[in-house]
Design a protein around this nucleic acid. Structure first.
Lengths: 234, 234
DNA sequence: GACTCAATCAAACGCTTGATTGAATATCCT
DNA sequence: AGGATATTCAATCAAGCGTTTGATTGAGTC
């Protein structure tokens, strides 16, 4: 009886160049997230991936194309998992969903789990910070719908909160997440390593309840402070 | 009677190259904050400043030196004003100082006022995000002492809050500030311009009370969740 | 065994980068 | 005025950038 090929029973009909493609994507993801998009050259990436210097352009067309591929590799699944978790906690028996559940559904897929983990998280923070035109489009393309749904869900969970307050709280949640992901290490230095924002478990344990509390706080009392009414913030 | 020079009575014994120096600093500050440190070349900067392409190196030695000069121009005064405001609200009659006062003392000098305004704010966000070794040192050099003092003040205002909770809340305040400063515009798009995080007045009006509320929230109840005790977060 | 074609390669393209040079220019001091 | 000094300039450097090229490889197909 003859031995079958090692690749058995049609489980992996992997295209020929796929291994190299993945190695380049891995190297790019790591280096982009570590040094920024402008801070890494294609030559460094391809060298790290043990590839020829033309390989990145061959497989992805351009540096921007490579970034888009790196981003899409995790962003699609991440947005989908967010939606799934949101739907799950919205259809849960004990209606309405707890604030913490919504917040957790938003944060968790991006911080732990199978969507690139801390490395991809740091890359997202880099992209938000460097924020060229194309990176902003990339971000919007993959995450705007999802973010809109979460804004709606949070608005339903807090029906008495004015829209402006809701927007600002959502903004603050994004800031806390992104800054935690970027992990510049400043808080670790200040606190002599007692606090490690790059540990996803620790981060989520603290972020979710704190953010829930923040969302629950009373709306900014503009009427109580006449000065603020002079500005067009309503 | 002979006319005095226009520069009267010793008010401004400005060194000769000072005007050019300032023009280069201005251009660098604006371009760095807009496109990131790696995203702008010295040639672009000097051209914007109507200077020769060698001027930046002549006045500041290197690109890194130019960045340091841009940073120091506002960072020193900003940290000083933070300290001043903190001291003022700590020695106020109605002791102890309100949480909102401390938070405001921390945020205000960096968001409005005479320390570079939104432009310099955005540059700080860029630096935290790109975060090379040298930029991290720059940041630490000018702001670590100040941040430590604010951590102490907040700790005194919240004596019952465990250190870890305090650190994480401080971290979240930094995140909210930096993200607001960076202003990637995502929240504006999502909310169709109803919410403008780049307006310092609006930002402070919302951020300060929200952050105060967050600082006041009860500590994370680790004991109530046995799972969390398995991790070394105490 | 010849043909095909995606994948990989070494090499080079044109251009930009940060930095340096030495001459020219402006300003100040005596 | 004139010499010293500080600044600006055009020109250039080596190095690195993203990208393109044309040849080479090697597995799959007839």
């Amino acid at each position: 009886m003859t031995a079958l090929p090692i690749e058995d029973a049609g489980v992996a009909p992997e295209p020929r160049g796929e291994a190299m493609r993945q190695r380049i994507l891995d190297a790019a993801e790591r280096l982009f997230s570590e040094y920024g998009i402008n801070g890494v050259s294609l030559r460094t990436i391809t060298a790290t991936a043990d590839a020829n210097s033309a390989a990145a352009n061959y497989h992805f067309g351009s540096k921007q194309g490579l970034l888009a591929a790196v981003f899409e590799r995790h962003a699609t699944g991440m947005a989908a998992e967010r939606e799934k978790l949101l739907a799950a906690c919205e259809s849960a028996p004990g209606r309405p969903p707890l604030l913490e559940q919504i917040i957790s559904a938003f944060l968790e897929p991006g911080m732990r789990g199978s969507h690139g983990g801390v490395t991809f998280a740091r890359l997202r923070a880099r992209m938000l910070a460097e924020s060229s035109e194309q990176t902003r489009e990339l971000y919007a393309l993959h995450f705007n719908d999802s973010s809109g749904n979460f804004l709606d869900a949070l608005g339903n969970a807090l029906p008495d909160l004015p829209a402006h307050d809701l927007y600002w709280r959502f903004h603050m949640m994004l800031g806390a997440m992104v800054y935690t992901l970027a992990n510049p290490g400043r808080i670790q230095i200040l606190t002599e390593d007692a606090c490690d924002p790059s540990d996803p478990d620790q981060a989520l344990d603290y972020l979710v309840p704190m953010l829930a509390q923040m969302f629950c706080s009373p709306p900014i009392a503009h009427a109580a402070n006449p000065v603020k009414l002079l500005r067009n913030v309503n």
